[in-house]
C-alpha cells in the first residue's frame, strides 16, 4: 500500500493535468467558456427558487440561500459518484495500453468535482454576503467539512469505479441511486422536517451530517455540531478504506476486462 501511495504521489502531475484538462475542456468552444462554471449553479438556483418559493412554497426564510448552500456541496458529491462510475471505462485507451496507478483516475474525477465546487463557493459566498452576511468566526469550518466530504466522495468513487468495470449496469444503477440519495439527504428540506421515527436512520446517511454542517456554517452562521462532524468523518474514512481495498483488488484485472 505504501508503494502504491508513493506511486500515486509520483503521478501527481498526471492528476493535475487530468483535472486541468477536464475543467478547461468542458466548456471549450462555447461562447461564454469558463463563465459557465459560475453560470450553471446560478441558473440551477434560479430554477429551484422559482419552483420552491412561488409554486411549492416551503415556508423557509430565504429559501433560495437555504437551498443554495446545500446544493453546491451536494452537486460535488453527485458529480464525484456519477463521474466515478464511468472514469475507468471512459479512459479505456489509457488503462489497456499504459501503466500508471489506476487510482489516479477516480482521484482526478473527485478532485475535478471539488475544484468545481470551490469555484462555485465563490458565488455562494458572494450571494451570502448580499443576503444574510458572513460570520467569519465560523467560516473556517468549511475546510474540515469539505475535507470530510472529499474523503467520503473518494471512498465511494473508488468503490463504484472499480465495480463498474465488472458490472456495466452499475453505471445506470448509480445514476438512479444518486437521485434517490439527493431526496433522502436534507438538501431541499430541513432535517427538522424529518419525522422522529426515521431520524436515526437519516443520520446514518453520511451526507446528512455533511449537509447540516455546510448549512450551519453558511446559512445559520453557527459552528457545526462536533459530534455530527465526527460521525461524518468516521463514515467517510470507513468508505475510503473499503473503497481503497476493493479497488486495489479489482484493479489488477482491469486491462483484461475492458
Amino acid at each position: 500500500m505504501q508503494k502504491t501511495l508513493k506511486e500515486i504521489y509520483d503521478y501527481r502531475n498526471m492528476i493535475y493535468m487530468l483535472v486541468r484538462k477536464d475543467l478547461r475542456g468542458r466548456y471549450k468552444g462555447s461562447a461564454l467558456g469558463f463563465l459557465w462554471t459560475f453560470l450553471n449553479p446560478l441558473l440551477q438556483l434560479a430554477v429551484y427558487t422559482l419552483v420552491f418559493s412561488t409554486v411549492m412554497r416551503a415556508g423557509i426564510d430565504k429559501y433560495y440561500l437555504f437551498l443554495f448552500v446545500a446544493l453546491i456541496p451536494w452537486l460535488a458529491m453527485a458529480n464525484s459518484v456519477n463521474g466515478g462510475a464511468t472514469c475507468i471505462l471512459s479512459q479505456q485507451n489509457l488503462v489497456t495500453k499504459i501503466h500508471f496507478p489506476r487510482q489516479v483516475l477516480p482521484i482526478a474525477t473527485v478532485t475535478t468535482s471539488f475544484v468545481n465546487m470551490l469555484l462555485c463557493m465563490i458565488v455562494v459566498l458572494a450571494v451570502c454576503i448580499f443576503s444574510v452576511g458572513l460570520n467569519f468566526a465560523v467560516l473556517w469550518y468549511l475546510i474540515p467539512t469539505m475535507l470530510i466530504e472529499y474523503v467520503l466522495a473518494l471512498g465511494i468513487a473508488f468503490l463504484v469505479s472499480g465495480l463498474t468495470v465488472y458490472f456495466r449496469d452499475l453505471e445506470h444503477i448509480v445514476g438512479i441511486f444518486v437521485m434517490a440519495w439527493q431526496f433522502l439527504s436534507p438538501v431541499m428540506y430541513s432535517i427538522d422536517m424529518v419525522p422522529e421515527k426515521v431520524y436515526n436512520i437519516f443520520m446514518l446517511n453520511p451526507m446528512t451530517a455533511v449537509i447540516i454542517s455546510y448549512r450551519n456554517i453558511l446559512y445559520y452562521k453557527t459552528a457545526p455540531d462536533l459530534s455530527t462532524m465526527l460521525l461524518a468523518l468516521g463514515m467517510g474514512v470507513f468508505f475510503l478504506v473499503v473503497g481503497w481495498f476493493v479497488f486495489a483488488k479489482l484493479e489488477r484485472h482491469f486491462a483484461e476486462e475492458l
Binding site: 509520483d10 501527481r12 502531475n13 498526471m14 493535475y16 493535468m17 484538462k21 489509457l94 499504459i98
Partner: peptide, 12 residues
C-alpha cells in the same frame, strides 16, 4: 506534450 508526458509519470 505536457498532458502526454504527465501520463508517463513525469513531473512538471
Amino acid at each position: 506534450i505536457y498532458t502526454n508526458a504527465a501520463i508517463f509519470g513525469l513531473t512538471r
